[in-house]
Design a protein around this nucleic acid. Structure first.
Lengths: 250, 250
DNA sequence: CAGTGGTCTAGACCACCTC
DNA sequence: AGGTGGTCTAGACCACTGA
């Protein structure tokens, strides 16, 4: 007899997690709502504590829930910021500005803290792109609504920016790009490489990330009209806080 | 007396995980290498099995390691594909094509499987962008080197494409964009919205994702020169398999 | 068939938050 | 003070892998 293949039942913790996920995705549980705790799940499903815990850990690692010590597990909030890559072709020029995904694009102020400026020897890849290892590095952290959302490390060829405001805290009006323009090396072209991955431990600390939050890593190179690379900027964004938008022609 | 604030020691499982992570990031353990198993960690650190397990789960959820049943836990492989957003400004036109992140951009063939074509009523956001809820939908899955890497769902206004090859499996030479051109609605502008998040369960299955792998979700809208939206394409990419590249002018 | 990871139980002590 | 999640122990049975 051919045994008809019985689909194996998922383990208990998965079925509990599936139920909770369904409640979240269906909207029965909304942003910030409290999930049933470990004790509640133990009683409701007649399981050991470790099993209830494992179910909750699934949702936490999926980024759908956030645990709060001594309080409970809560549905994760998602309030993205819209970051425009190429603004040159503003979407509204040829569309009605219809976005697929919502985001609070409105003027929420950025705060910049933890600025560090140093002269360093760049790592290999950056030295290759900039054509030299001697660089000035500007490290910054950006916050919106008091929450850190982005880390940014900019590298400039030392030979180019030595002695200019780019090596100082206050870069003056227009920022570093205006200063590069003053030097006759205004950025004219950009290339951005975008990846997503789980955060490294120091990023988890600096961006205050809960478990289950990926980061978006952007590597951006600024070139002059002559094709000379004048800046390499490596950014790390809290993926739950961002929608990137790029507009371009066929 | 003011008690000097002692930095609290991290828990055991974290210190084990930190050690393993260090070994991975430093290159002592390389792509595909086997990590110390649960039994090895129990013996080496004199801990219970659940603790050793918890340490490994940290690395797995960080996407640094992949468990294989009955075999062991292995260092995760990372072989990204380079996906170009705007090719119009090829990087090599004004640079030496120096990329920050490596990727196998070379001609690795895409395979398309699980094609589904249906006439449907679109969800609200897509209906709003396309200006109508009646749509033809093309669902596809792409694989590279036999591994699924991308899911894609394209929606077209039904009124526009009814009866054309776009509603059939074989769209003919040039694909759907060429057919839209035949209809006098050639795409001229694109906007892409990029997010990263942890995968939903069905995406985990369809893309065969190990734990700790985020996905990149791209929402792409194609507009004609007149500004009419003619396609909405929602893609979900295995984040570990992709580097997105966008080039644009200042 | 021995070793591996996957699941599960039944306890324990702790730090933290809320009331 | 009582409830919450965070960590940890010491067992158990299972399915799968690989030599």
């Amino acid at each position: 007899m051919q045994q008809s293949p019985v689909p194996p039942e998922p383990p208990i913790y998965r079925r509990i997690a599936d139920g909770l996920r369904e409640a979240i995705l269906s909207g029965a549980l909304r942003d910030g709502d409290r999930l049933p705790g470990e004790n509640a799940l133990m009683a409701e499903h007649r399981v050991a504590r470790a099993t209830a815990r494992q179910a909750l850990s699934v949702l936490i690692n999926e980024g759908l829930a956030v645990p709060k010590r001594g309080s409970g597990v809560y549905v994760r909030l998602f309030r993205p910021i819209r970051r425009h890559g190429s603004r040159r072709l503003a979407q509204r020029q040829w569309g009605q500005g219809q976005a697929i995904w919502d985001s609070d694009t409105a003027g929420r102020p950025y705060a910049v803290d933890e600025v560090e400026i140093d002269r360093e020897v760049a790592e290999e890849e950056i030295a290759r792109v900039l054509g030299g290892a001697e660089v000035w590095v500007r490290r910054r952290r950006y916050s919106v609504d008091g929450r850190p959302v982005q880390l940014s490390v900019s590298c400039f060829p030392a030979a180019l920016v030595e002695g200019t405001p780019i090596t100082r805290q206050d870069t003056g009006p227009g920022g570093v790009y205006a200063r590069l323009g003053d030097l006759g090396h205004a950025p004219a072209h950009f290339t951005e490489e975008v990846r997503a991955r789980m955060p490294h431990p120091h990023e988890t600390v600096q961006l205050d990330l809960p478990a289950g939050t990926p980061v978006i890593a952007i590597g951006r190179v600024a070139y002059t009209a002559e094709g000379v690379a004048v800046e390499v900027n490596e950014m790390v964004l809290d993926a739950a806080s961002y929608v990137l938008q790029y507009d371009f022609d066929a």
